[in-house]
C-alpha cells in the first residue's frame, strides 16, 4: 500500500491535478483511491468517481481540519487496504498556511498556484516547507518571468523539494509526477508514525463553543497581539 498526503491552499488546483495524475496511473492498471478532507462541503468525490476512482470525503465541520485529518488517517488507510487499493492519496486544504498534515516517511506533496503571488511561498508554513514534492499549477496563464520567479521563491522556501509544474487542464506534467508517486514508500499501518511537524494548537474557550466576546470569556490557550 502506498500513501501520499497532498495539501495546498484552497483553489490551488489540487483536485484537477490529482485527477490528471491518477489517470496516468490508471493507464498502468494501478488502483488508486482518494480521500478528500474538507471543512463544510465538497462535491469533488463525484469528479473522482466519474473517472472510476474510489473516493471518500471527510468533512471536519467545526473541528480544525488538520486535527480531524490526523485522527482519521489510519482509518482511511484501513479502508483502502480493504478495498485492495495500490495507492491512497489524501487531499486536504491548508486553510491557515500553518497546516502540516505531512507524515514522516510518507510521501508529502504540496500544491500551490502561480496566481497566489510571488510572496506566497514565504508565507506558507510546513505544508510547503516540509513537502517532498511541490507541484506548481496555473503556469499557463502567467508570464514565463513570473513562473521563473515563483519557482525560485518556492526553491528558497524548500530547497530540497522536487519542484514540478503541472497544468490541471491539459495534464502537462501529470504523467511525470505519476512516475514520482510510484516511488512512494509503502505503508502497512500508520501506528507509531510521526507527523513531520506539530499541528497548530487551539484549545481555548472558543473551541468549546463560546460565542461571547470579551476578556472574561477568553480562557485556555489565548494569545494577545502586540499593538504598541
Amino acid at each position: 500500500m502506498q500513501l501520499i498526503t497532498v495539501a495546498g491552499p484552497p483553489s490551488a488546483g489540487k483536485t484537477s491535478v490529482m485527477l490528471k495524475i491518477i489517470e496516468t496511473l490508471q493507464e498502468e492498471t494501478l488502483k488508486v483511491g482518494v480521500i478528500k478532507f474538507d471543512c463544510l462541503s465538497t462535491q469533488d468525490q463525484i469528479l473522482y468517481q466519474k473517472k472510476g476512482i474510489e473516493a471518500k470525503i471527510g468533512l471536519s465541520g467545526n473541528l480544525c481540519p488538520d486535527h480531524f485529518f490526523v485522527s482519521n488517517v489510519q482509518d482511511c488507510l484501513t479502508w483502502s487496504q480493504k478495498n485492495n487499493l495500490d495507492m491512497l492519496i489524501t487531499e486536504s486544504a491548508g486553510l491557515c498556511n500553518r497546516c502540516s498534515p505531512h507524515i514522516r516517511d510518507v510521501m508529502a506533496v504540496c500544491v500551490i498556484d502561480n496566481l497566489s503571488g510571488v510572496n506566497t511561498p514565504r508565507k506558507v508554513g510546513p505544508m510547503l516547507k516540509l513537502a517532498d514534492i511541490v507541484i506548481i499549477t496555473k503556469g499557463d496563464i502567467v508570464s514565463q518571468a513570473e513562473r521563473e520567479v515563483f519557482a525560485f521563491r518556492v526553491k528558497q522556501a524548500n530547497p530540497s523539494a522536487i519542484i514540478v509544474h503541472v497544468n490541471g487542464i491539459t495534464g502537462q506534467g501529470a504523467r511525470e509526477v505519476g512516475q514520482l508517486f510510484k516511488g512512494a514508500q509503502g505503508v502497512d499501518s500508520l501506528t507509531d508514525y510521526h507527523l513531520r511537524f506539530s499541528m497548530p494548537a487551539a484549545t481555548c474557550s472558543y473551541c468549546l463553543g463560546q460565542t461571547r466576546i470579551g476578556q472574561n470569556f477568553q480562557m485556555g490557550n489565548v494569545r494577545k497581539m502586540d499593538l504598541s
Binding site: N114, L115, G117, V118, G139, D140, I141, V142, S143, Q144, E146, R147, E148
Partner: peptide, 11 residues
C-alpha cells in the same frame, strides 16, 4: 520556457 497567447502579467 513557454510563451502563449493566454499568458498575462498578474503582478
Amino acid at each position: 520556457a513557454q510563451l502563449s497567447q493566454n499568458m498575462n502579467f498578474i503582478m
